[in-house]
């Protein structure tokens, strides 16, 4: 499961099981389908986003320190190029 949250207070902006994460050199390209309204809500806080991949016993925290985020409106696809990744246990 993937969650996109606001970094100040952790408000949930998007949650989905449909996503891909692709390693690109020192970055991670996170892609997910979203509707226009959800994309707008996320883009409003593009400098303050935390992305979490939630697994059974661990969470993986990503963020893009330079707000590299793009919404392809035709395909309704959100693309985030993260430059930070930290894995930590859920307990």
């Amino acid at each position: 499961m993937l969650m996109i949250r606001h970094s100040i207070g952790s408000r949930l902006l998007c949650q989905t099981n449909i996503y891909t994460i692709e390693k690109k050199d020192h970055h991670w390209l996170i892609s997910l389908p979203v509707d226009v309204e959800t994309a707008s809500g996320i883009l409003n806080f593009q400098d303050e986003l935390n992305i979490f991949e939630v697994k059974e016993n661990e969470k993986i925290w990503y963020y893009s320190s330079d707000a590299q985020i793009n919404f392809q409106s035709k395909e309704k696809q959100l693309m985030i190029l993260a430059d930070h990744k930290t894995v930590y246990p859920t307990q």
């Binding site: 100040i8 207070g9 952790s10 935390n50 963020y63």
Partner: peptide, 20 residues
């Protein structure tokens, strides 16, 4: 940016979470 006035009950709290 944040000014939270918090009261947490005995033995409870915030588990592991990130900040940046």
């Amino acid at each position: 940016r944040v000014f939270n006035d918090d009261t947490v009950q005995a033995g409870k709290g915030f588990g592991i979470h990130p900040h940046r």
